[in-house]
């Protein structure tokens, strides 16, 4: 396959950045999208040019590190991660535009690499059950209906890649935040802290500069792990219930 790539290059956070065009003549349809970048980078390196920097690690679609905005969609045309996107999803001669995630809360570090530590800080605000190691009850002491466990699991599969933010016209992080709040609110172990959790995580989300939700649903439609929009509804319910009885009004 022949592919034309238009890639966002930006030396560092302070640089203005811009698109550069690259021609690839020998792309195999079996390559993953990132393997195509590997091949291009090998070429650039052997010419003494700076390779294109991009985040990636597990290449199995689970670590959430890869983050390319491809032809106007996070992770490209398929609902999957960039590392699991294969060149057979494109056609010979196609021009592909690749950008980093665009959001105020995800500043560009270099080329396609962005800083997503804002997500870590949201989790630090309460995305856990406050138990110390040891002294916990037997795992089978509290039965949990299979349906509830399965639903909690579905929310828990979020990989924290940030595609939801990149897809949203408001750069909202509601899907990411709601997935964690939902998972823990559904399980008996997480119910104890559900109110403070919802309040604190949402406050942190706002502080990081993520936008508001206007119910467009692009986040869920583009999520590589198919995190459902219902999570946002659940989060809103958690939030209002918490606020109604909150001591921090």
């Amino acid at each position: 396959m022949k592919i034309t790539l238009k890639v966002w290059r930006q030396k560092n956070a302070a640089d203005k950045g811009g698109f550069q065009t690259y021609q690839l003549d020998n792309v195999s349809p079996d390559m993953s999208f990132l393997e195509m970048f590997d091949v291009l980078n090998e070429e650039l390196l052997s010419k003494g040019e700076d390779p294109i920097h991009f985040d990636h690690d597990c290449r199995e679609g689970i670590c959430g590190m890869c983050s390319m905005y491809i032809n106007g969609k996070p992770h490209g045309p398929k609902q999957t991660t960039t590392c699991q996107l294969h060149m057979r999803s494109f056609h010979d001669g196609q021009t592909i535009t690749v950008e980093p995630w665009r959001a105020k809360a995800f500043p560009v570090v270099k080329d396609l690499v962005v800083d997503r530590t804002s997500f870590d800080r949201i989790i630090q605000a309460g995305g856990y059950v406050s138990v110390n190691t040891g002294g916990v009850p037997d795992a089978n002491e509290i039965p949990i209906p299979k349906k509830v466990a399965d639903e909690a699991f579905d929310s828990a599969t979020c990989i924290g890649c940030g595609a939801c933010v990149a897809a949203c016209k408001n750069a909202s992080a509601m899907l990411f935040v709601s997935a964690k709040i939902s998972q823990l609110a559904m399980l008996p172990q997480g119910k104890v802290e559900r109110k403070t959790r919802a309040e604190q995580m949402i406050a942190q989300m706002d502080e990081e500069g993520f936008g508001a939700c206007t119910n467009t649903g692009a986040c869920s439609a583009e999520c590589p792990k198919e995190i459902k929009l219902e999570n946002i509804a659940r989060m809103n319910r958690e939030f209002y219930t918490a606020k109604a009885k909150s001591e921090n009004v």
Binding site: Y128, V129, V131, V136, P137, A139, P143, I144, P145, K146, A149, D150, A152, F153, A156, Q183, L184, L187, Q189, G190
Partner: peptide, 8 residues
């Protein structure tokens, strides 16, 4: 106890 949703 941490809320890991194991299969049930």
């Amino acid at each position: 106890a941490q809320g890991v949703p194991f299969a049930r």
